[in-house]
Amino acid sequence: MSPNAALQSDVFRLYLLIVGALLVTAGGVLAVLTWGLKKNVQQVWVTYRAWLIMAPAVIGCIFAGREAMVVACALLAIFGMKEFARATSLYHDWWMTGGVYLGIVAATVVSLVADPFSGQPGWFGLFTTLPVYAIAFILIIPILRNRTQGQLQAISLAIVGFIYIGWMFGHLGFLANSNHPYGYLLYVIFSVELNDVAAFTFGKLVGRHQLRSHISPNKTWEGALGALAVSMALPWVLGFSFPHFGPVQRVLTGLIVGIGGQLGDLSISVIKRDLGIKDMGATIPGHGGILDRIDSLIFVGPLFLHMVNYFYGLR
């Protein structure tokens, strides 16, 4: 991955066109709704404006190359972790929080360095076994500090934080080391966000039955199934992202995005509901916190990566 390679990649240029066209179309639809039909869509404008910044930022990172993508994912993980820690009060313990930050930095370094055995970028073997070392490290922190009170809670939250936000989300950055980085990265991010939008739209239009009444009252079965239908069709519509995929891999990709995306959303909702908060933060206007935005990617990134690795090898 490099700016030059990006410009010469048909996949990258096609996505640039699709995302650009979608943003313009969405802006046009919103304009018609606001000034043509005089609907009150003020809140949607706020969300849309945030997309106008986020979409170019994501594409810019992918354009800039492998290192930029890995580091950008690491920064999102660190600030996502910060939101999680602030929400769960793990943040009162700066040693534990700092320990998780260190773990995220370690995952980033492992994603950047070359595999000492094959010489290829990204030390995949160590990356997949990193939780062993990270959990051991987190367990050592209270021992070093000679503390017991409240440590079980701190250890548990730190481990969840590292595995969930640091490591699972880190898989997205690791995809930059694969042999089809543009197709995989752009497809995963694009399809997951489209899946979210589809769930929201279907839910608004035809939603009747609550999907999980105690967890997220606004999500409906109709929205989830509509989104799944979109996600199942997408691997064929955007087949140019991975021309080597057969029907089995395309179906799996559809299922991973369609179901995994929803599960990612719901699992963050479980945490938020238990804490009694609405959003994980207010970093992105109209979207909530960073975690509220990347929640679906946390599930889809690792599942997609391991599916690809199983069938074709990552490199």
Binding site: E83, R86, A87, T88, S89, Y91, H92, Q153, L275, G276, I277, K278, D279, M280, G281, A282, T283, P285
Partner: peptide, 17 residues
């Protein structure tokens, strides 16, 4: 039950915080 003390300013933007 675990005791959580969620940050008071969780729902505020950076400038507000």
């Amino acid at each position: 039950e675990w005791r959580y003390e969620t940050a008071q300013d969780l729902d505020q933007t950076i400038v507000e915080r």
